[in-house]
Design a binder for these strands. Structure first.
Lengths: 191, 191
DNA sequence: TTCTTTTCTTTACAAAAGTTAATGAGTTGA
DNA sequence: TCAACTCATTAACTTTTGTAAAGAAAAGAA
């Protein structure tokens, strides 16, 4: 149950056997079906999720349309961090794109865990840093690359997702319309 | 010298008098002139800067052109975080847009400080979280808003910078060309 | 299965931004 | 002071993307 979680942690902090046993008691396990909404836009994100199996999508809603902010794969932490960290209403929603198995920790439990296991603070700092670096990377791609280049990079890095996720969700993540994505794909097929 | 630094910290962590005195010894003071390069593209960022006075610009270079990634104001931490955190070559440069007064801490000193003052770990985590939230905010503006809307928001939030920073640097931050920014400004003047 | 919904692609047209180049105002520095 | 440079704006033209609508294929529900 916690195997891939501690595998994810091990390059970041070294927990003792006792640490691990304690940490496990602060998490709960949850299975959600495809299309299940974990965090609704406007609500406060009280939980963070480690994905054992499945796929979660973080999205904005604008003019009644969904715009993908990020797609989380298995063996990653996921959540509406912005809302979770500030404990303020979320401007993003989080939903399952596939039937998913999740490890869940609440905000309050995490704060308690910081006090019980100080190394959790280090883990949290490193995850926050990683997420920052990642956000920075995506942002730099928006700043530096054309939509076509962004598509190429996405395809190279996440080719498998193309079979698991509808293209219009990927298009909005790339900052373009499905129509434009279709044109780009056509352009690249017949160069 | 450290007044605005501890003022910045106080909502995040509460340092004791002894903490503060110790922390001060790990920083150094530096004055740099306008146009001074603090971190060159390709070098590893070994330092982080707290801006007592002045303005710093983080930028990418693509095809020989500068593209602004962020503009740091006084009373903020600044640096090429990506490079600093990973201690890997920077894909960004950092330069002074005005004569600036900086508090400087090195990577090694920061690691030592974590051990001496554990609360620094909490401060670092919270700063990383803030920076993540900020990157997220900028990214969501790229995803959700048109260039025209981004300009309006920038003007509303950072109107004072328009007098301190050349417009073409702001244009590249907004993801458009100076020509396009000029058109947008004209369009908004005569609606 | 059959029917409905979702997903993906295509077309034609409109709108916006990029590119290149020219102009003029304002600064900088020798 | 005067030449050189930087910066902002404008124009003409090209390229790209957005919008709206329609049809085909695939997936899901009754």
């Amino acid at each position: 149950m916690f195997q891939s979680f501690f595998q994810y942690c091990s390059p970041l902090v070294s927990f003792t056997r006792e640490d691990k046993q304690l940490i496990e008691t602060y998490f709960s396990f949850r299975q959600v079906p495809k299309k299940f909404t974990l965090i609704a836009n406007g609500k406060i994100a009280r939980e963070l999720y480690f994905i054992n199996k499945g796929l979660l999508r973080l999205y904005y809603t604008k003019d009644g349309e969904d715009i993908t902010a990020f797609i989380f794969r298995e063996h990653l932490f996921s959540g509406s961090y912005d809302s979770f960290l500030r404990q303020a209403p979320s401007i993003q929603g989080l939903e399952a794109l596939e039937d998913s198995d999740l490890l869940v920790i609440t905000y309050d439990n995490l704060q308690r865990l910081y006090k019980k296991v100080p190394k959790m603070e280090t883990l949290s700092r490193k995850i926050a840093e990683q997420r920052f670096i990642n956000a920075q990377l995506i942002l730099s791609s928006y700043i530096l690359d054309s939509p076509e280049e962004r598509w190429k990079k996405f395809e190279a890095a996440n080719g498998d997702l193309l079979l698991r996720v509808p293209h219009h969700m990927i298009a909005s993540f790339l900052g373009i319309t499905p129509v434009s994505l279709s044109r780009i794909r056509k352009r690249l097929q017949h160069p």
